[in-house]
């Protein structure tokens, strides 16, 4: 009876370790699959962005309606950002693949931002853009989660709001140049809204004042009604 118990105890230990190993492998595999999915989406978006940029260069100001898909692209960039944030939460901010993807995503954002500006000038529309700089360094930005949530809420209230989020500490030349051009100090959260820099986040109402008057007017009325 004891030999049966000992044999089974050892066998159970081996099987348990195999199950745990399989679970670790499966979770890791799924995470890598997600990263691969992100990479594929990112590549597709990069191609699409390049396509719009090329199209824009070819047509110059001739046919704004032909390059209206720029809006769709921005939405896809935004969705990609959400997925990337999710992957970062799972794999950690120091994961090499995550950093690589963030670098590419940041480049994509900057290109989309520049393209939006060029389209706006050429096609005579005035987009409302918010550049949002955060930091993942522990303790460096206690209000960043609140700021991110508020921006998501404001984007939900008015989908015309274009939000570009940047990890301030990312070691990427283009981002450093953007930070230098926009003169953003390392105080978080930092925003560039309508060309004006603001730092810190207190309340949603105060935050709204940074945006053009009436930009959230209709939605605010609805919100009040809902409350």
């Amino acid at each position: 009876m004891k030999s049966l118990a000992t044999r089974n105890a050892v066998l159970a230990l081996v099987i348990t370790l195999l199950i745990i190993g399989s679970v670790v492998y499966a979770v890791n595999y799924l995470d890598r699959q997600r990263v691969a999915e992100l990479s594929a989406i990112q590549n597709q978006l990069a191609t699409d962005t390049l396509s719009v940029e090329t199209q824009f260069a070819l047509l110059e100001t001739a046919a704004c309606e032909d390059i209206s898909e720029g809006n769709t692209l921005s939405q896809e960039v935004s969705n990609l950002g959400e997925k990337l944030a999710n992957a970062e939460g799972r794999l950690g901010a120091t994961d090499e693949q995550v950093i690589q993807l963030k670098n590419q995503y940041t480049l994509l954002e900057i290109r989309d931002y520049l393209l939006t500006k060029r389209l706006a000038e050429a096609c005579n529309f005035k987009p409302t853009v918010a550049l949002y700089f955060y930091s993942n360094v522990p303790g460096a930005c206690t209000d960043c989660d609140r700021a991110s949530y508020a921006l998501s809420y404001l984007h939900d209230q008015n989908p015309n709001l274009r939000v570009y989020s940047f990890d301030y500490n990312l070691n990427l030349g283009a981002l450093k140049t953007l930070i230098a051009v926009e003169k953003v100090k390392p105080e978080f959260p930092a925003f560039v809204i309508e060309g004006k820099r603001t730092y810190g986040f207190t309340t949603i109402d105060e935050f709204k004042t940074a945006f053009p008057k009436d930009f959230f007017a209709s939605s605010t009325a609805t919100t009040t009604k809902n409350q």
Binding site: L4, A12, T16, I20
Partner: peptide, 18 residues
Amino acid sequence: FLGLYFQVFLLVTFLSTP
């Protein structure tokens, strides 16, 4: 880990001849 180990032990023993 311990919960899984105990259950695997039970399963292995369940399948054994005795």
